[in-house]
Structure formats: structure tokens, C-alpha cells
Design a protein around this nucleic acid. Structure first.
Lengths: 337, 337
DNA sequence: AAAGCGCATGCAAACGTTTGTATTATTAAA
DNA sequence: TTTAATAATACAAACGTTTGCATGCGCTTT
């Protein structure tokens, strides 16, 4: 491997001059810089980033910690963050926690030990608060949280307008003539899920509908199925689900009870997973905007800005909630596109 | 940050002894090791891996380069590799190429500059051969290729039994009584797709069916739709598709021509994407075993072994190819479970 | 008792870069 | 022409770890 010393020797200058020339310091003559650059190219020099990182005390790596990369949402966040970070000369190191707190702590340790320039994180369900996070990461590495955030942690946060989104979804169900709208809620230690629950609740109130059933901690297909059965037996004719997989379970529950969708039973999920548009009937879903959230998180890191950024959600109306009862339409639903 | 020198000073020994103690060298007394470990824990020491990497000339990072992380296949490969590598004390750095050769080359450069311990890669469609790869990565970093491999590159390779899998899928269609079976093939510069094409061809021969239509370079939904229309117009009553998304497109094409699935038109995709089991009718698919491929790739890296490892595929028979024409069943199809 | 050996540790040089300070060459001002 | 100021480069010390070689000590062997 060719080093700056090799280049320096070849040109009869010192390594420091070469270093400065290559990093664009104004302390070298233009002529020298050109000579250095040409020689570097000629000799096939590439900067040893490990040495550089050691000396500078930080690297050009940004860590991204997510529960699972194969979730559409997270892989798109990563894509969005990557698009910004790559352009800014960073490379990204991706860690999965599989929803386990220990894995999250371990990932933070690993990133700290690698002296990453910053960390973008969406917490594992297993994480209850921000204490461990700060302890594991230390306080001098910039931290940006997205989607699943802890308000007690410092640094920037990027979230969806979960309240407004769930409100719009629920209101849409009401417009379609459903009158007994329950919800498949997520984990209540997550602010995002809590906000969706409140949005659902508020929409019911505003539409003059009775309080609906809440089925908490239903995130996956299986629990969605079970909760779906319970909801149907309790008399629900529609569900707003805070997740798509649980919504899918509920669809199967409705089918197993012989209900037609959307005629007898309506459903709106959340996250706009790929399968929602491919299944039959296609499923309405409250889409997050993960790519934009990733972009915003990366921007927040680059700018070193604190504060909360809100990325709007968008309701994708599909077959599972489209009864077309136009007489029930509530005009001017602001969130409905 | 506390360093080994701090620990050494606190104990009245030298940094070298501390270093040896912490890395489990047999050259320190058991007693000393204990004292060092206790002091390290007490002072909250954590090894500076950047410095360590610089000195050792390599890191504990393994790079994984894939076209897109959100593809089910790749995210599962990553999961499999992670499960092995993490246990072995490595952490993984994931890079996406978005199917672009330049991005692949850039990722390899980045990994090399970070002195990763090894690279696991599945090539971008844009990559034509292994020349650029070796040039960008250098020759002293172990390289393991999976799924999309170039035989002209050194190092281990992990592939599916594409020929046998496609053979089984096609034969299954023949068993179900389909008589005019075309194929939606992938890109022919990929050995995996080429092998699937041959498996399809061989199955037709062995089943005494006429040569079928080949629609190459159809990988995505749109091209699958167009090729599907052509296939139907050409008289096909079934398709083996080398991808699931193109198979989905073909399903939509059949629908648009008023054909019933599976009664009038049969289809088997490849990859077993999530949506295949969720759509209606559910789609048969030739499942890859990505998690196992990831495990094998990681193992190959750890063992430093060259050679090719073959991971078997599994045909998932679902509604899109199930006419239940039992009189046409070919007994003892070895690949059919 | 001297020589030989093995064990535990110390010493010091690396790994390749960055950067504060010192030095020299160049130009401008007096 | 001398002096001051500035530009360009050189010098050298870091960053924290690892590791070959040297050292010293206590023990066995002849």
C-alpha cells in the first residue's frame, strides 16, 4: 500500500505537505497541490481511513440502528438516509436489533467503539426508555432518533404525524358508513402508537361515534387475527389497525367469520407494506413516508440541529375500506388525498 | 476516554502487559490478567478498535454488498450471515448498490479503505464480470460471493441449485396438466438465471413437451405484464417465472385477458416473496433459502474455505398452479415436497 | 556454583495520518 | 539595503494499540 510518505519521498517534500495538499488546505501552493495530486493518482494512492480516523478521533461512518432491515419501512428509511449521507461523503453501517434491547445496547457499543460520526436510531420494542442508550453510546456522539423516539433523550427527532394520520384514517372509515370502529393498537410504550390511538379516539368523538374497542399490543398477523375475532364478536364493523400485518390478520379473521370486505367489514392498516396493494381485496393503509424520514434524519445529523421534525403521513384508500357510500361522506377531510 | 496506558499506570505495569492481558495472550500471569481485567472494568475501559485496527491492519468489520436490502431475499441473507458473524465477534457493514456497477465499485473501495476483514457480495445486475471487483477490492481481502456470482473470481461461492429448482417447478406445472409452458427468464449475464432457464428447458424435454417461449430480461412487474400478454397470445397456458414480481405481472396479464388462474393459466414464480402467500389466488413460488445462504457465506469466510456451496431450493406449491389434475401427476418428482 | 532454561514483564518501534509550531524562502515596505 | 511581514514548507509529536526483541528473575540441571 502506498502512503503519503511514499508520495512525499517521490516529490521531495514532507508527508505533512502531502496531507495538506490532499485535504485541500490553503497552506500549500497551488502548484504543489497539483503535483501531489498527480503523483497520488499515478502511484494509485488511497487514503488509509483507519489511520485518519484514529488521528482525527472520528470516522466517516454513520451508524443506523433499526429493529429489522427487511421491514419495508426501515429499509426505506435507510435508503433515504443513505441518499443524503453518501452525497456528504459518509458511509453507513447498518445494525439490526431484532427488537431486542441487548442487541440495541450492543450495537450502540460497537458503533461507539468504531468512533462513528453519528447514530440514527429507531428503538427496539424491548427498549423502555433512553437511559441505557445514552450510557452505551456516550454523550459526545450525535444521536438522531426516528419513528420510535424517546423524548427524554437529547438530539434531533424525526416522527410522523401519527395523530393526524390515524385521525384521517378513522374519519375515512366513518365517512364510508362504518359505525362501530375499533382499533388494533400497538405497544403503548411507543409514542408513535400512543399518538395513533389518540388520533383514532379523537376522530370517533368528532364524528359522533361511540367509544370503540382497543386491542393493544397487536402488531403481528397472529395477534391481529385473534384480536380481529374478538372485535367482530364485540360488534365492530371496522377496524383501524396501527400496523399492516395485524390488519392482515384481521382481514383473515373477518373472512373466517364469513364477513365480506368491505361490504360487511372495513379495515385500514398502517405502513403501506408492499403486500397491501397486492392482496385481494387490496388493503387501505396509512402510509408513512420512510424515505423522507431517512432524508430528514440524515439532514438533522449533518446540520447538527436539535428539535423535532414531523413528516406527514398519507392515507392510501383501497378496496378494504371502500364502500362508496357517498351519502356518508364528510366533506373536506383535510388529511384525505 | 480511558486507555490501556491509564490502566497500566494504575497497576504499575506497562501498556504491553495490559494489552496482552486483555487479548488473552498466554504470556501474562493469570494473577496479572485478573488484576488487569478488574481494573479495566472498574475504570470503564473499552478498547479503541480504530487504533487496534490500524495496528493490526484489519478490522472486525465484515462488509456485505447487496443490490437492495429491502428485497426479502437479500435481507434474509444478511440476517443469516449476521447470525454467524455476530457470534464470531464481527460486526457487519451493509452496502446497497441499487443494481449500479459504479455503486458496487464504490462500496468495494469504501470497504477496502476501512480495512474490513472480508466481503460478502451479490453482484449488481450492472456488473458484467469480475475484473472491476478485484481491482477495486484488492487481492488480500477475502471475498465470498453469493447468489449472483462470477466464476472468474477467486474465493468461495454460495449458490442455489437453480437448475434443479427450475426443473422441479416446470415439471410440477407439467404434472398439473399444463402443456404449453413458457418462461419469464432473467438477465442472461447472471449464471443463476441462466441455470434456471436450462432447468426449465430440460424439464420440458423430459416431460415430452414442445419447446416453450422464452421472454428474457423480465424481472419486474411491468415487464412481466407485457411478456405475460405476449405469452398468452402465443398460446402459452402456463409460465415458469424466474422472479416473483414478473410472475405477478403475468398474473395481472392473464386476468386482463379474462383467463382464470389456475384453471386456464398456471404460474410459478421464484423467490417466495412475502406477497406470494398473501395475494389471491396465492402464488406458487420456487423458494430460495436466503437465511441458509447467508449462514453458508459467513461460514465460508470464517473458515477461509474456497469452493462452491450449493443451497437447495424448495418449491412452494400454492393456488396459482394447483389444478389438482391427479391423473397427470408424475410420481416421485425428487424436488417436490 | 555456573550454565541453561522458561516464564513474566518491560522497552520501543511500528501502523499512516493529522496538525501545532518552527523554519525557511519570498515579497513588500521603509 | 535592511527589516518586517507573509507565504510555503519542514519538523515532530501525537492518536491508542500491538508485537518482536530484550531483560530480569527464579528454577532446574550438570
Amino acid at each position: 500500500m502506498v502512503t503519503i510518505s511514499d508520495i512525499a519521498a517521490a516529490l521531495g517534500v514532507t508527508p505533512s505537505t502531502v496531507s495538506r495538499a490532499l485535504s485541500g488546505s490553503p497552506r500549500v501552493k497551488e502548484e504543489t497541490r497539483l503535483a501531489v495530486e498527480q503523483m497520488a493518482a499515478e502511484m494509485g494512492y488511497e487514503r488509509n481511513v483507519v489511520a485518519s480516523n484514529l488521528r482525527k478521533g472520528k470516522s466517516d461512518i454513520v451508524g443506523i440502528i433499526v429493529p429489522r432491515i427487511h421491514r419495508n419501512f426501515f429499509s426505506n428509511v435507510i435508503g433515504g438516509a443513505e441518499s443524503i449521507l453518501e452525497a456528504a461523503g459518509y458511509c453507513v453501517l447498518i445494525c439490526q436489533t431484532h427488537e431486542r434491547l441487548e442487541a440495541e445496547v450492543k450495537a450502540l457499543r460497537t458503533l461507539r467503539n468504531n468512533q462513528v460520526a453519528g447514530v440514527l436510531i429507531s428503538h427496539a420494542i424491548g427498549a423502555r426508555d433512553g437511559k441505557h442508550i445514552l450510557e452505551a453510546l456516550g454523550s459526545h456522539i450525535p444521536l438522531v432518533q426516528f419513528d420510535r423516539v424517546f423524548s427524554d433523550l437529547p438530539g434531533a427527532k424525526v416522527v410522523s404525524n401519527n395523530f393526524e394520520g390515524a385521525y384521517a384514517a378513522t374519519r375515512h372509515l366513518a365517512e364510508q358508513g362504518y359505525r362501530h370502529i375499533g382499533t388494533l393498537a400497538g405497544y403503548m410504550n411507543s409514542e408513535a402508537y400512543a399518538a395513533r390511538l389518540e388520533g383514532w379516539r379523537q376522530a370517533l368523538r368528532d364524528c359522533g361515534l361511540p367509544e370503540g374497542e382497543v386491542y393493544a399490543d397487536t402488531i403481528v398477523r397472529e395477534t391481529g387475527f385473534e384480536a380481529g375475532l374478538k372485535a367482530i364478536d364485540a360488534g365492530c364493523d371496522a377496524l383501524y389497525s396501527a400496523g399492516d400485518f395485524s390488519a392482515l390478520g384481521a382481514v383473515e379473521a373477518a373472512r373466517s367469520r364469513g364477513l365480506r370486505i368491505p361490504e360487511d367489514f372495513g379495515i385500514v392498516g398502517t405502513a403501506n407494506e408492499t403486500f397491501t396493494s397486492l392482496m385481494t381485496p387490496s388493503m387501505s393503509s396509512l402510509a408513512l413516508n420512510p424515505f423522507e424520514m431517512g432524508r430528514q434524519a440524515a439532514q438533522a445529523f449533518l446540520e447538527g440541529a436539535d428539535g423535532v421534525r414531523v413528516v406527514p403521513m398519507e392515507l392510501k384508500v383501497r378496496a378494504s375500506s371502500s364502500r362508496n357510500n357517498s351519502e356518508n361522506q364528510i366533506p373536506n377531510n383535510p388529511c384525505l388525498k
